[in-house]
Design a protein around this nucleic acid. Structure first.
Lengths: 190, 190
DNA sequence: GAGATATATATCTAACAGATATACGACGCG
DNA sequence: CGCGTCGTATATCTGTTAGATATATATCTC
C-alpha cells in the first residue's frame, strides 16, 4: 500500500514557482524560461497551458480574463494560498537523482567506430558550445547585478548562475584534456 | 519543404551501439546501462524491446531464438552491416544542445520561500550524492583498468569517466561555495 | 521448502520536447 | 499604401521517454 509514486511533475512546480514570482500569463512564463532559466530549466507551451488549467481546477491558482480593446483577450493567472503551500512543501523535498542522458558522451564512448578526426571535431564543437554558454551566462549575470532594483530572488539566481559557470568551466577543461587523449590515440594507431 | 525534423531517437542509437559492442539480449543491455553507463545514459525496458523489434523490421539488426532446455526461450539480436552504417553516420553528427532540467537548481532559485536551513539541507544532501557518485565512478574505473583484457572501447570509456569526475568535482566545489553564501544570507536577515 | 535474487520479455501510463496552427497589432520599407 | 515580418498570446498534436508493473523460470540462501 501507499506506493511511493515517483512521478516527476517538474512542469507543475516550475509553473507554480513562476506564479509565485508574479508572472501572470503562459506566454510570459515561456519567455522567462527561455531568457532567464535556460541554463537549468526548459518548458514548452504544451506543458505550460494544460498545467495552468489544471492548477486552477485544483484551486492552486485563479484565472481571470482580461479583455483589451483591439487586442485579443488574455488569461491572467495568480497563485492562491494553497498553491503557495504546495509549492513550499515541494521545495524542501530533496530531489532524487535525475536520469542522465548525454548524447555527446554516448557518441564518444563509441568513438572507435569512426575516424579519429571525427571524434575530435565532436569535442571541439562542444567546447565552442560551452564557450557560448559561458558568455550567455555572463550576460544574464551582469543584467542581474546592474540596476538597484534587487529582486528578492536575486541572491538565489546568482547561485544558479555560479553553478552553470562552474559546470561549463569544468567541461572546458575536460574538452582540452580529452582532445589530448584523442590525439595520442590517433598517433598510436599510425 | 524538407523540414529538419529534430527527433532525438537516443534510444535507437544507444541500442544500436550496444549491439555493435556485441550485447545480444535486451536484458543484457538494460544491465549494461545500469552498471556501466549510468553516469551519462539511461534506458528502460519500455524503450529497449520495442526498439529492438523496430531495428529488425528495418533490417538494421537480426533476431534469432535460442531455445534452452529448462530455461525460457530468449531472443538473441545482432547488428547488420546496414545497422553499423547507420550508427557510424549518427556518431559524427554534432549533438544539438539538450534540454536542461535541474530540479535542484529550480528549488534553489525559489529558496526565498522557505526557511534558510531547508535550503542548506538541500545542498548538503546534494553534496553527499556527488560524493557517492564519485566513489561509484572510481569503482567502475578500477574495474576497467585492472585486468589485461583491454576492450577496444576502453580508452573512450575512460574519457566518459573523466567527464563524470570533472563534473562532480566542480559540483562539490560549488556546493561548498553555495553553503557559504546561504549562511551569509541567513546571517543578514537576523 | 520458503523466500529472495537473477534472468528474460513485454506492456502501460503519464510526462515531456518540439512543432505547428491561429489571430491580431505594430513596425519597417519601398 | 500595401507587404512582409516580428512580437504577443493561446492552444493542440505527435512522438519520445521514464518509471512502474506483470509474468515466468532458475538458482541461491536460510
Amino acid at each position: 500500500m501507499s506506493s511511493p509514486k515517483k512521478r516527476r511533475l517538474g512542469s507543475r512546480y516550475a509553473v507554480l514557482g513562476m506564479l509565485s514570482m508574479g508572472l501572470k500569463t503562459g506566454y510570459a512564463m515561456k519567455k522567462h524560461v527561455e531568457g532567464n532559466l535556460g541554463h537549468y530549466w526548459s518548458e514548452s507551451y504544451g506543458q505550460i497551458y494544460p498545467t495552468l488549467r489544471q492548477l486552477v481546477e485544483e484551486g492552486l491558482a485563479t484565472c481571470s480574463e482580461e479583455k483589451r480593446k483591439g487586442k485579443p483577450t488574455r488569461n491572467l493567472y495568480a497563485i492562491t494560498p494553497s498553491g503557495r503551500k504546495e509549492l513550499r512543501e515541494w521545495l524542501v523535498v530533496p530531489p532524487e537523482p535525475q536520469p542522465q542522458r548525454s548524447e555527446l558522451l554516448l557518441k564518444l564512448s563509441l568513438g572507435d567506430r569512426v575516424a579519429s578526426g571525427k571524434c575530435q571535431k565532436l569535442i571541439r564543437d562542444y567546447r565552442e558550445q560551452c564557450e557560448r554558454d559561458l558568455s550567455y551566462l555572463g550576460e544574464i549575470e551582469s543584467a542581474l547585478r546592474e540596476p538597484p532594483p534587487k529582486h528578492r530572488d536575486q541572491p538565489y539566481w546568482l547561485m544558479t548562475l555560479r553553478h552553470g559557470r562552474a559546470i561549463r568551466e569544468a567541461e572546458l577543461a575536460w574538452c582540452t584534456e580529452t582532445l589530448e587523449h584523442l590525439g595520442q590515440l590517433a598517433g598510436e594507431e599510425k
